[in-house]
């Protein structure tokens, strides 16, 4: 791991228009991601966690420009991806790949595994045609699928194997950054563990950088170096793994961690149960977006939006919460 920034996301906003009325005018916006900034260093695994609708997947898609962002900058090795033309971006995706959640839906059922992998190589012209078959064999062996299965169709594989094919496809163009969007969420635990170990192995082998999007804090703790916690389109906390799990500062992070049912029966912890539901991202609450459910909210939270500020003693930890200010005083 180095401290060289590979990916810098600056003030990224993703608003989806809501059309309405007779003329189909934009009447409002879903503010899926609302002004977030973070950096991913080379060789690092940064995770984004949060509940449904917090904007974690939208962030991943916006970085790869699968949906063009509303505003903001995405710098990859110092180059702004947002200013690239469509054709340039397509070439650039050689360096940025994505693995999707649903291994059933993300592979073309009419293509064999070798065709799926070859298509990626052809588009990015990374491997000369005559060497492709050999490369495909290597790739499949790397992800733990026998090379003799390369001419089979996706439906002939199990869920775990399909996810391995998805990983092989991402690797086929020798990327630098892989966005894993809930890459293991659809798998059973015993298979999930196999795929997580594979991802870790590949990272060591190919010096990959991961942006890992997940709702499962157990998985995140296992794989990440740094963790971003999102709530309703905003980052509420970014911290090194150790700091986040040992000493979470944001009330939302604390609640999230305490809400997970633990398999540790010996130690029963007091649980923080949040009241109510996540508010709508169309009209998010003014001030701190979490204040409607926060057990510690005070007047200021409903008026002023908290900014991310450094709180780490030694390690890296940033929190967006007015309580930090109050405690400092």
């Amino acid at each position: 791991m180095s401290n060289q920034a590979l990916l810098e996301v600056k003030e990224l906003k993703q608003y989806f228009p809501i059309k309405g009325g007779v003329f189909g005018r934009t009447v409002n916006h879903v503010k899926a991601v609302d002004d977030i900034s973070f950096t991913v260093n080379e060789g690092e695994t940064v995770s984004i966690v949060g509940e449904s609708g917090c904007g974690k997947s939208t962030t991943g898609r916006a970085i790869l420009r699968l949906d063009n962002p509303y505003s903001g900058n995405v710098l990859f090795e110092g180059e702004d991806l947002i200013s690239l033309s469509k054709a340039q971006m397509r070439k650039k995706r050689k360096d940025l790949q994505i693995i999707f959640q649903d291994p059933y839906a993300s592979l073309n059922p009419r293509q064999t595994v070798s065709q799926i992998l070859e298509e990626a190589m052809e588009i990015q012209s990374v491997v000369p045609r005559k060497d492709r078959r050999k490369k495909i064999q290597e790739l499949l062996e790397t992800v733990g699928i026998g090379a003799h299965q390369m001419d089979r169709y996706p439906h002939e594989f199990s869920g775990g194997q399909r996810q391995r094919i998805g990983i092989a496809r991402a690797l086929s163009v020798n990327p630098k950054l892989i966005v894993c969007d809930e890459a293991v969420s659809a798998l059973d635990v015993s298979i999930q563990a196999q795929v997580l170990n594979l991802l870790k192995d590949l990272q060591r082998q190919f010096k990959l950088t991961y942006l890992f999007i997940s709702h499962d804090l157990g998985v995140v703790r296992h794989i990440s170096d740094r963790i971003i916690v999102m709530y309703l389109g905003k980052i509420v906390e970014i911290a090194d793994k150790k700091a986040l799990f040992d000493d979470p500062k944001h009330p939302y992070t604390q609640a999230l961690l305490s809400a997970i049912p633990s398999t540790n029966i010996a130690e029963k912890k007091e649980r923080i149960i949040l009241k109510g539901d996540v508010p709508s991202p169309i009209d998010p609450p003014v001030g701190c977006r979490f204040h409607t459910r926060c057990p510690y909210a005070f007047e200021r939270c409903a008026v002023e939006e908290p900014k991310l500020m450094n709180v780490g003693n030694g390690g890296f930890q940033q929190v967006a919460c007015h309580l930090m200010d109050e405690q400092a005083k």
Binding site: S158, G160, Q161, V189, S190, I191, Q192, A193, Q194, L196, N197, K200, D216, L217, G218, V219, V220, R221, H222, I223, F245, L257, I260, S262, T263, N264
Partner: peptide, 18 residues
Amino acid sequence: VPKHDEDVEGDLSIIPGS
């Protein structure tokens, strides 16, 4: 199962096959 309240060093132990 990756635990959220415990650090696991190195790889997760797995059940081989499917």
